Amino acid sequence: MYDPTAEVHPRVWADHPTLADVLPAIGTALGGLAPALPIPTARDVVLLVVDGLGDVLLEQHRESAPSLTALRAGTVRAGFPATTATSITSLMSGTACGSHGIIGYSFRTARDQTAGRERRTLNALRWTLDRSDGTSALDTYEPEAIAPHPGTIADLAARGVEITYAMPSAYRGSGFSRAAFRAVGEHVGAQTPTELRTAIIELLRTHSTAPRFVYAYTPDLDAYGHLFGPGSPQWVEALGVVDRMVADVAAELPSDAVLVVTGDHGMIQADNRIDLDTVGGALTGVEAVAGEMRVRHVYTRPGALDDVHARWTSIVGDHAHLVRREQALDEAWFGGEVTDVIAERVGDLVAVARDTTILTRSLSEPTLEVEMPGHHGAWTAAEQFVPLLVAHSTSRAT
């Protein structure tokens, strides 16, 4: 069991597998070879992503999730930042965000990618401008240009693997889905865990002449963690629902199918808030603040970097790691390879909150986001480590 508050720095933990290693391993298993990760060879593989399922949280609440606990085959790092938009794109592309380009919940792109228009902040998860509840960014930022790496999911399709996506229907065709899921496939709408369980079981019962990969996704655990806090009664109840769903699917697996379950990040409960909108001087010399409350990209005005760095150092103190872009890139925070175009998206300063601190913007971001207790994105073990759970015909959940 990891210390939940221990920091999992990308440079120190570079050799530990990440979410970017999962789909390449699945591709190897579908090809009949033994992958680096503990995933058995199979004709059909279902990858179920449980949003917000951290390994530390699972261990802390193992009595509420006996089936998930019994299937644990290892852990992987979410990668940095530990946030849904980045993690899912890393999963599908098989690369870190320095290659695929979705470097966080929100960020700015290079000026030359906006056709001479004012540089705007892109919320990658919602595909909106400036705020999560802002106007659509589709006319400003083409998803396939922002995330130009088709990646492993496209490679599977090119090999003849049949691709199916089972997730809430609202996600189909969204800006983020276009950026992350770069292979044509069948879409099955599944709004609830019950619908998702039924969809997966029915897909596996359907005959196919080609090997199949099913990507399945459920958002509920993450939502309850954000709204009520990880480990809250509501969150624990949602964990139990996921546990029963996984047990049901595992019990129905054909002999030539494998179920792989993982999360996109874990979560911490915030109890120390630094409000950047009300702390004197925090925004002086700053053009924009992006990212999320555990990881902030700070874009400074020309000539203001030194002053902003000094002020933010005084403001955040020991509550956050604060470095300039060059140091973050040198230390491979965003992966070992970062293209020049994507490097320009990184803030002039990057702030990574420590322990249970969050860097809020009470006047500039939606109240619901500012006030929610559950957060993720940074380096604590509670946020970074996600479980790798594997079920097949000889290891079904009980």
Rank of each mutant, 00 (worst) to 15 (best):
D3I: 09
T5C: 11
P17N: 12
G31W: 08
L37V: 10
V45F: 07
L47E: 05
P66L: 11
L71H: 07
R77S: 06
R77H: 08
A78D: 07
F80G: 04
F80P: 00
F80I: 06
A85V: 02
S90E: 02
G94A: 03
T95D: 10
C97N: 04
C97K: 07
C97H: 00
Y105W: 15
S106M: 01
T109S: 12
Q113E: 15
Q113G: 02
R119K: 09
A124L: 12
A124S: 15
W127S: 02
L138Y: 03
T140F: 11
P143R: 13
I146L: 09
P150H: 07
G151M: 03
A154Y: 01
A154M: 10
D155F: 05
E162P: 01
I163H: 03
T164Y: 01
P168I: 06
A170K: 03
A170P: 00
S174D: 04
A190W: 01
T192V: 07
P193W: 12
P193A: 12
T194C: 00
A199I: 10
A199H: 06
I201V: 15
P211S: 15
T218Y: 11
D220N: 07
A223E: 12
G229E: 11
G231C: 06
S232W: 01
S232K: 02
Q234S: 12
W235G: 04
V249N: 09
A251Q: 12
E252H: 13
L253P: 02
D256P: 08
V260K: 04
V261P: 01
D264H: 08
H265E: 04
H265T: 05
G266S: 04
G266H: 01
I268M: 14
N272W: 11
A282E: 00
G291H: 03
R294K: 02
V298C: 02
P302C: 10
A304M: 13
L305T: 15
D307A: 15
H309N: 14
Q327W: 14
W333L: 09
V338N: 05
I342V: 14
A343D: 04
E344H: 13
E344A: 14
V346E: 00
G347N: 11
D348E: 08
L349R: 08
V350I: 10
R354N: 09
T357A: 05
S364E: 14
E371R: 12
G374P: 03
G377D: 05
A378T: 01
A382R: 04
H392W: 15
